[in-house]
Design a binder for these strands. Structure first.
Lengths: 201, 201, 201, 201
DNA sequence: AATGAATGAGAGTTCATTCAT
DNA sequence: AATGAATGAACTCTCATTCAT
């Protein structure tokens, strides 16, 4: 039954201050905390101080909330990343920036949808997966280009594709242990990963 | 209701050939495919050719199946790892072995519980978490020792604790993209990660 | 959403004394009284002294109950009619029997599904409609043959097809006004309609 | 909740060209197509190009729309019928006219409420039923008189009351099969029923 | 050990209706 | 007159779990 609904035909950033924006944000936070399946629409509604039926004024169903949270997150992260990359041509520095941007996206309290993308992938139906996938393409293409360049320079010891997966996994896992409020800053955390891969002579 | 049940007081390896062993195996496989929450006890039972009520002759509840699958997996992986480490004293080689063992555990078809440990952690209640945590301790202690040794030798550029998280994430993520049947063998995959971290002079 | 479920692949008479048989009977009675849409599964369950969830042990959804009630009704009515027609060759007498059988089916307390067929037709999805339609075919074919024969004899003044619709409507409407407990017996009622159409010289 | 509201205290014909008139018309059409219970106020509103909340500026609730649609229909049909009967004294001819008028009312696209009266009777609460019933009285009294007269002349073979039910059913059922756009005109259809009952010598 | 009917809480969703703007 | 966000009760259906057989 989860199969026959499709969202995000026309993706567009929702204003974070709107009712809809707050709703997506709150929902994504709960999805992160408890998992999508374990989060009920009543949980989301009560967090917002409304009743569960009112959610369906804004979204046709629960999955649409997840889908739009992911869509917004990847769009936002893509923009942020491209802005941050501007003017940098050195592949090593580009990688440093990519890592930092992804860390930022994963731990941005105002954009809780980014870290859902991998673990809650299975919660999307085929159509919604296709939609999110297409949005991720531009973002992943950037990564690929940088890593390929590094591979050709023999700065890294693995195929670009394989290395991207390693890095994604390492970064995603930070959501399970890293607390931004601790002693390690996000910048330092990013650098730790960067330096684990790129050894300076 | 998930809160008030505790399993795995007395952990012991179930014979893989027993009815109980097959049950855990089948269930863990389904949990991997669809996620614990989305897998129903009926799914598990029908895969086994029995009715859902019959599951409860073997396990007090669904969570217990998850818990024991994890417990078995970590015990089995620990044994396998310690066997593989025997006689190796060089820290670099030890790391290579650890990585290879974890890849093996993650992709072992006969031990599908290992890859559940992180993503389905939240599906366990407090008691069961404590139980699994204690079983993981010995396993993680081994990792820690090796990584600390490498850090002291300045072979790696991050704190042992942080690096362990990076590696765990990178390895876990392989479950989402790596197919053992493809062109890259598990050994090669392990080596890719090893060489990404440990740069040879 | 009502669209994507199909029932009655393999139609077979359910034993009226079984739990399932009683369930269909009770449900169909309620559908007659209040209409399908206004009858809740809780209504049905509470009439049976069980809880609403238990219904779904026997039927996959509410529509399936309606569908099987119709399927059983038309099968039962077909059998009854063919038995009653045996040995009768005179078309007038055959019509008399057909009318009587349909009156009987419409007012049979133990087969409350028959009178649902027309008014609740729209409550079925496309697949279920096709299923019921195919079951009705044999039944309607009988009517058609008799009425055509009468038309050729010029005993009736309308095309067989049109006349069948008139008769069906007239008979169906009896459910809204006729009470078998009143002064008019079912036999008499049937004869009134018969004699309204077939004028004796 | 359907019980405690009463409409149609003061019945009056709404101008068909008014906003209210169009609304009733559109709603009744939908009620015919999908059934009252399955038609949502959003369906009606979207057909009119407004939002569902706006309906309640014109009508206190959904049931009122149904009720007024019926009320208008019976008033309109009564007027039409009495006009058509004027000057006709022969009972047979009167019946022919009555049948034709009812066919006309049932298939009048501009008066879709008439065919709702029987099948959606159950959707009205007690007060609204009483209201519609009183409006139908004059209309039905006309039928009764004509049929009694025919019965006394022994032109028909059933009690007036019973025959009226037969005819009503036969006519109502035409809504389920007869298409005015087909080869049979409404006049011909009416005559078919007339001639099925009144056999010419 | 297994069945299968039943439970009962709770899930997502629907929808007539209200009301401040 | 119309909007559209919100309500809240009711809906169908799911599912882990129980238990007499």
């Amino acid at each position: 039954m989860i199969e026959n609904y499709k969202y995000c035909d026309e993706v567009q950033l929702i204003e974070a201050d709107s009712a809809k924006g707050r709703l997506v944000n709150v929902a994504a936070k709960l999805f992160n905390q408890k998992g999508y399946a374990r989060t009920t629409v009543r949980d989301i509604a009560s967090e917002l101080g409304i009743l569960s039926g009112s959610l369906f004024h804004h979204f046709p169903n629960k999955e649409a909330i997840l889908c739009i949270a992911m869509a917004e997150a990847i769009l936002k992260a893509s923009k942020f990343m491209e802005l941050a990359m501007e003017g940098t041509t050195d592949a090593k520095q580009q990688l440093r920036i990519l890592i930092h941007c992804e860390i930022t996206a994963l731990h941005d309290e105002n954009d809780p949808g980014f870290q859902l993308m991998i673990p809650e992938w299975r919660s999307l139906n085929a159509d919604n997966r296709a939609c999110i996938l297409s949005l991720r393409q531009r973002y992943e293409a950037r990564w690929h280009k940088v890593l390929e360049s590094l591979q050709q320079q023999s700065v890294v010891n693995a195929e670009a594709r394989v290395l991207r997966h390693f890095i994604r996994g390492a970064l995603l896992e930070t959501c399970n242990w890293y607390k931004p409020s601790g002693t390690l800053s996000q910048k330092e955390l990013s650098d730790r990963l960067f330096e684990s891969i790129i050894h300076q002579q």
